[in-house]
Every structure is written in structure tokens, then in C-alpha cells.
Design a protein around this nucleic acid. Structure first.
Lengths: 198, 198
DNA sequence: CCTCTTGTCTACCAGATGGTAGACAGTCCA
DNA sequence: TGGACTGTCTACCATCTGGTAGACAAGAGG
């Protein structure tokens, strides 16, 4: 197993980082190749074109994030606010450690509708389950009454936005230190929860 | 006055749209030129380089948005929740009518630190006033106690995020119709206000 | 009428980019 | 041993991109 070269995985990893931070268009195949330490042609051996590389990168990102969220939901107690708290905090970790991951998700709106729709459809069942869950909890009076789909979109926008825009934090002079980030995570969760409490 | 060609303004407008939607790197000077209906060289006559065009575009966007917010604050009653409500709704209008505007702001995190810092510094005094205001209102118990700077960053992230990511709305099957958008505006304001109410 | 300025254009260029063709080295069986 | 396969590389190419040089038309003003 260890002889199996993991070039493919290394390319994917570097691509997530670069696409997620600089953006797809601003990243050349040569950029990625030089980060990985191979020739550009090696990229094109594993992925026939830049577009197909992007597809693979998006698919992998969706899978990774879905796994993080799924695990957080499973681990949290069966109570909506606790679950939401857990999800926000769970997403926060990779978001801070590797902002490129969420940066890539946000990049989607810049890409061709084809790519966008593919990713949208892949999270569709996921979203639908979440909507059903929220609706039930709202009906039961355990969450503020609102459109469940929109609540998801808003919570997503808040978390993704704050995680991918270090500039925004710099503008309000927020300290980007371990302590500062821990407090950020708490305040972020508090912000979202306050908006959802009945 | 009417003989004064407004090519410069047209270029700026098209640039905001294209930079804001596709991104800076993905937009070529030829793209902009063909939208405006002039030759590329005409762009380079008005703006010596693509970089300086970007500077001008960012500066203009900051001015436009600042004006919208300033006006909303002035018009609203002197009560923090009413003011925040007014600002969110005021920003929502241009955000929906021209998502590229906020898309451009978000693009900043992809750009060189030089551009980012320039824009950050230009909104600095603005932000500082807002922080002081929020702190006072929190001290007076009219807003939920939290870090005022962070609250601004979070509210910004929420509004910008939802406005610039039609994909997110599509994923939760939100109807992008006039009625749907009006409801979105109301729910967005409600979301932010719920998070800030004491 | 001449000349200077302004705004736009065509022609062109050097460098970067995505992608093709094919050589080459190592490994895996038969 | 020898051929097929796998993974990586060098060489090359067509196209696009930001930018330069300079021609040209239309006023403006003496």
C-alpha cells in the first residue's frame, strides 16, 4: 500500500487550497504542480483537464464537509439547539484550520452553472432532511418560527462568511489568535442560536 | 455636459458587474471592453492598468455602499434595533438588484493584501463609529451583550453571504421572485434582529 | 489654416496558460 | 527475457492576456 503513489491525493489537496484561497480562475495548473512538486503534465495525467480537476475537488470537498456535519449531528444530544450548536462548532474547526475549504464552496457562485448545479444537487438530500427536521422542531415550538430553508441558508451564510473573510475580522480589529478564535467560535454559535431560539 | 463622453463611468459600471460576478482574475480587459462596446485600448486609456482599474472600482463601490448605509441610518429613528433593521433592509436593496456589488466586496479576500488593506482602511472610521454606537447601546441594555465588533462582522457576513450566494438559496429551494425576495428581506432582518435583541 | 489636445482605434508583442505528443524509466507478469 | 502497463517527464503548440506604439479623427483656439 505504501508504494502506491498518492500523487492524486496530493494534487487534490493542493487544488482545494489554491482554488479555495485564490480562486479557480486565478490558479494555474503550473501553480498547483509546483506546490505538489511535479510537472504540469502529471496533473493532466490524473485529471484530463482543469475542469475535471475542479469537479473532483468539489466532490471531495462536499464529501469531507458532509462527513464533519454528519458526525457532529450524531454526537450531539437530540435537542435542536444543542444540535445546531454542535454543527456550527464542528464546521468552525475545519473552517479555521483550513479556510480554503469553505472558500472553495463559496467559489461555486463564481463558476459555471454546470458546476454549481452539480454541487447543489449533491447536497440536496442533505438539505431536505435538515429542512424537515427544523420544521418539526419549529412546529413543536422548540425553535423560533421561520422558514426552515431560509434559516439554513442564513446560518450557512453567517458561518461561511465569517470563516472565509479574514478581512472582515481585520476590519473590526478582531484578534486572530487561538484565544480570539475560540471566543469567535463561542460568539458565532451564540449569534446563530439567539437568532433561532423561540 | 452631454457631449462629455461617459466612457469612464461605463467602464467602471461594467467592471463592477464583471469583477463582482465572475471575479477579478476571471475577467479579462477584453471582456469588459466588449460589454462597454469599445476597444481594449480605450480601457487602458482611462485606467493605466488592470490593477488601477480595480482600485477605482473598489473605491467607487465603497463609496456607493457607504452612502446607502449612511442614508439609512440617518432616516431611521434613534433606536438601535430600528436602525439595524433599517441598515439591513437598505443594504438588501442594492444587494438584490445588483449582487455584483457585494460580490465585489467579497472578492477582496481573494485579492492581494495591498488592495484588501486599502479597502479595509477606507471603511475603518465607519466601523469604529458603529462599534462605539453598539457598545453604548449594549451598556444601556438595549442590545444583547456581545462583542460589538464581532456583531458587526457577523451581521455583515450574514447579509453579504445570503445576497451573494444565489446557489445557497437555490439549494434550499427558495423562490427567487419579487415576493420571495421581499419575504427574504423580512426574514433576514428578523434573523439578525433576533440575534441582537437583549 | 495650422497646431495642440482628447479620445478612440488598429497593429503588434512578450509572456502565461491549458493542453497534446511522445520519450523514458520502472514494475509486473508470462 | 521480453513485452505491456503505469507514472512521470521534456518539448512543443495554439490561444489568450495585459500592455505598448502609434495612427487617425474631431474639436478648440490662435
Amino acid at each position: 500500500m505504501s508504494r502506491r503513489p498518492n500523487t492524486r491525493a496530493l494534487i487534490l489537496e493542493a487544488s482545494v487550497d489554491l482554488f479555495g484561497s485564490r480562486g479557480f480562475a486565478a490558479t494555474s495548473l503550473d501553480d498547483i504542480a509546483s506546490v505538489v512538486g511535479v510537472a504540469k503534465q502529471t496533473l493532466l495525467y490524473w485529471f484530463p483537464s482543469k475542469d475535471e480537476l475542479l469537479d473532483a475537488v468539489l466532490a471531495q470537498t462536499a464529501i469531507e464537509l458532509a462527513a464533519v456535519i454528519e458526525a457532529a449531528v450524531r454526537a450531539a444530544p437530540d435537542e435542536p439547539l444543542a444540535r445546531i450548536d454542535a454543527v456550527v462548532k464542528a464546521v468552525f474547526r475545519p473552517a479555521v484550520r483550513r479556510p480554503q475549504l469553505l472558500g472553495l464552496v463559496r467559489e461555486v457562485s463564481r463558476l459555471s452553472p454546470v458546476h454549481a448545479e452539480r454541487l447543489t444537487r449533491s447536497v440536496q438530500p442533505f438539505v431536505r432532511r435538515a429542512i424537515d427536521y427544523l420544521r418539526e422542531e419549529m412546529d413543536a415550538g422548540r425553535l423560533r418560527r421561520a422558514d426552515p430553508g431560509l434559516v439554513i441558508a442564513l446560518a450557512y451564510a453567517t458561518v461561511t462568511g465569517i470563516a472565509t473573510e479574514p478581512e472582515a475580522l481585520r476590519a473590526v480589529e478582531w484578534p486572530v489568535t487561538p484565544t480570539g478564535l475560540r471566543r469567535l467560535r463561542e460568539e458565532l454559535a451564540a449569534f446563530v442560536l439567539s437568532a433561532l431560539r423561540p
